[in-house]
Design a protein around this nucleic acid. Structure first.
Lengths: 331, 331
DNA sequence: TTGTACGCGTTATCAC
DNA sequence: GTGATAACGCGTACAA
């Protein structure tokens, strides 16, 4: 409510002096400082971040944007926490948006962020060639990609070794003797999907297992598609004896189908999912998964963003984190 | 990047005219309008929300704040989605913060929001007497409380009938023949905890079941406390045959304890939780819960906030939503 | 050491 | 119908 002007009047000094007190400039004599601070307290002064942002073009907004597909997806919620904690530690606030894997929504929010003069943006791009992200990056706005990479755009990036995760998951299944492994993957326009698919194929190749194309299905990362695609796979004349499902929500969906069909896990079908869940242990059965260090992905991304804000000219960096197999009872 | 000034120069008009074109004022001749719009396109003009906000004291920031304890809690994630969807529909952006049930963090973020001149704030207050919220509301900032109410502060409020939810849950357990029902509740400073406790007590009273104080434990809404308290309860010389756990995370924790102790559900212990989970069906066993309409809570809150922004003088409204028993296999 | 004055990008109120 | 111009609250170069 109270502005610099009002504080200055009360302290009988100029706004410049008040500003100096606030900005810890040492060029102010202790007595004046005291008077000003008194006035600041009495009026309960709060600086306007808006005015400050308007004045200072640079990276002093102490505000960053985060765009994720869906905050209700525990994987993204975990990333969001990582980003938020790192942001809070640096006293940055967060503009959070859900894009729903919808390019229009993403574009809308990207515009909002530009228009809000945020200091930088963290997001998993919609796909490889995400035009909106390219445009934004072209304006000089610091952008850090997480989870997914972009084909032609060089930005800071925090990703997980998806190929390795998938390779390990499928190898694990193969080691258990499965030869017909169903794959439920995500949209092929996103880099992670392709990497996981390669991991799947490479694992099969290593053991010289023939690829059955009818065992490979692409969903949209959502629960329903997991349910539907698992159903298709299990209805096959020669159904898979194991499923590798490429994200958390689709895994839960697949599990629903399995239960509905009265199948036992892992005797009738084994299943390994991508992404851990806080309650994976409490599921029926406790789920074997490839765990992504989502929290670290978020934290690391925010830290990269802070570095870039401080030094816009530094070379883009890629941080690659390692996934981890968590073997429980579903395999 | 491009400002009104630059557009005006390019179109050879004044900034006032450009502004008029942007604000759909009809007081501009078609030809001029065309020229201006041309310039707008060519420069890729985006209005600065920051400058606009500085100028317009009122509720035109098209930005609202949401403070929740933890976005990783599915209950709050669902509320957040409800708020976000309603905000997006009205073209509002969302400043989202996690308070971690920590008054200091809450205060920090509340200050940020004031300082950002958001149009309004949605939050579940830390407790009944949350000083920071009272201060904020005193500044005239529109505040809508969700989930939890405040003792002395009259704000718009969206809540769920917690007493009823708890009453039904415990009655359900009683109907199944349980007479020793453990209660794992949350912090007693929050209104919902007390209401749920009353529901528990009233249900027992109705059947004239004696209250065993040793069966009532208070946690902090987090998974760990559910685990620990369930363990305490089940280690009692006369352990409960059923558990009523007052939030989702604590329920998952309690479930972990139950499994660890090798107990069968519901034969050895029945359990009913508060808050549904998207994967409650996939848990072992599928969980009986009191479902809160969290998405609607969020949506309704945002709509209330929009109404208040439009008309700051309207009388505060309380919207009370109904919970719903979802009976699955854990009881 | 302190004060004055300008500019950041808008909107809105005046004149013309 | 259009164009100057004054705020909005802040930081800072420059003057005192």
């Amino acid at each position: 409510m109270a502005s610099l002007q009002e504080v200055a009047q009360r302290a009988k000094v100029s706004i410049a002096t008040v500003s100096r007190v606030l900005n810890k400039s040492d060029k102010v004599v202790p007595e004046t400082r005291a008077v000003v601070q008194q006035a600041l307290r009495e009026l309960g002064y709060r600086p306007s971040r808006v005015a400050r942002r308007l004045r200072m073009k640079d990276g002093r907004a102490h505000l960053v944007g985060l765009i994720i597909p869906d905050i209700q997806n525990p994987f993204y919620a975990e990333i969001a926490r990582g980003v938020e904690d790192a942001a809070y530690a640096a006293e940055y606030a967060l503009l959070l948006c859900n894009s729903d894997e919808n390019p229009e929504k993403e574009r809308f929010y990207l515009n909002v962020m530009l228009s809000e003069s945020v200091d930088g943006i963290v997001l998993p791009p919609f796909d490889d060639t995400d035009a909106a992200v390219i445009e934004i990056a072209a304006t000089g706005m610091p952008v850090v990609c997480v989870d997914r990479s972009m084909a032609k755009l060089k930005t800071d990036l925090v990703e997980v070794d998806n190929h390795r995760g998938a390779f390990e998951a499928v190898s694990h299944l193969l080691a258990k003797g499965h030869e017909h492994i169903g794959l439920i993957e995500g949209r092929s326009q996103v880099s992670t999907s392709r990497e996981r698919r390669r991991g799947y194929l490479d694992a099969l190749a290593e053991r010289e297992i023939a690829v059955r194309k009818d065992l490979m299905r692409a969903g949209d990362f959502k629960q329903d598609s997991g349910r539907i695609l698992a159903n298709e796979l299990l209805a096959l004349r020669k159904p898979p004896t194991a499923l590798f499902v490429c994200n958390n929500l689709m895994t839960v969906g697949a599990l629903a189908t399995i239960h509905q069909r009265g199948l036992r896990v892992p005797q009738d079908v084994a299943i390994v999912g991508f992404d851990d869940l806080p309650w994976a242990e409490a599921l029926d059965p406790p789920l074997t998964v490839v765990r992504q260090p989502a929290y670290e992905v978020g934290r690391e991304a925010m830290e990269l963003l802070l570095k870039r804000i401080m030094d816009p000219d530094r070379a883009p960096v890629t941080v690659r984190l390692l996934p981890e197999m968590v073997t429980r009872s579903s395999t």
